[in-house]
Amino acid sequence: MKWLLAVVISILLVARFLIVPVWIHPGWQVRAKARVCSEVARTVNRLGYRILLGQSGPGELTSSCGGERGIFYCISIPGTSPPVSLRVGFP
């Protein structure tokens, strides 16, 4: 009985620390998201018209945003024909 109580109490004491990484997870996702959003904005501003020449910096050029999975952000460039969007993903 004493051993059982000791194990239960130990689990309860330790669990609240072990469970923390699970709560951190969305925060990690947000940090990754912030990183890709900043990167895509920086890339569009730095490259400017060079996007029309097919340059994409650390990102990749796609015909449309959406459809992909994972942490990424995609900025569309109006006025391009065929349509061009710059996508930066979390490595």
């Binding site: 900043s38 895509v40 501003n45 018209y49 029309l52 952000y73 900025i75 460039i77 006025g79």
Partner: peptide, 23 residues
Amino acid sequence: ARMWELAAEADTLRARSLIFARA
């Protein structure tokens, strides 16, 4: 996360308007 997305959209408006004009 939405705030970062919104900032990325807004911060690139200037560059995108000029790329649009150049194209």
